[in-house]
C-alpha cells in the first residue's frame, strides 16, 4: 500500500467505527430515553420503569462504555496501520 492508500483505508475503518458507535449512542438516549420511553416504561426492573431508567441513568452508563470501547478500537487500529507511535 502506498502512504496515500494506507491513510484512506485507515480513515474508512475509522468512519465505520464512528457510525456503529454513534448509532448505539443515538439508540440509548434518543431511542430508549425519549422516542420509545413510554413503551419501555411498561417494563419494570426493581423500582425503575425502564424508559425512565434509560433517560436518567442507563444512557449515561452506555456513553462512558462507548468512549472506552472507542479508545480500545482506535488503539488497535492505530497499531494495525503503524500510526501508534
Amino acid at each position: 500500500m502506498t502512504k496515500q492508500e494506507k491513510a484512506t483505508a485507515y480513515w474508512k475503518e475509522n468512519i465505520k467505527y464512528l457510525f456503529i458507535l454513534l448509532t448505539i449512542w443515538f439508540l440509548v438516549s434518543y431511542g430508549a430515553g425519549i422516542l420509545f420511553k413510554d413503551a419501555l416504561d411498561t417494563i419494570k426492573i426493581g423500582g425503575f420503569k425502564l424508559g425512565f431508567w434509560f433517560a436518567q441513568q442507563g444512557s449515561m452508563y452506555v456513553f462512558v462504555v462507548l468512549i472506552f470501547v472507542y479508545v480500545r478500537l482506535m488503539n488497535k487500529l492505530d497499531k494495525k496501520y503503524g500510526y501508534g507511535a
Partner: peptide, 23 residues
Amino acid sequence: YDGAVYLMGWTGGYVLLALLLAP
C-alpha cells in the same frame, strides 16, 4: 422525567467530543 434533558444532554456531548472532535 423532563430533567433527563440535562442529564443526557450534558453527558452525551462527551461522546461526540471524544469521537468527532478531541483527537
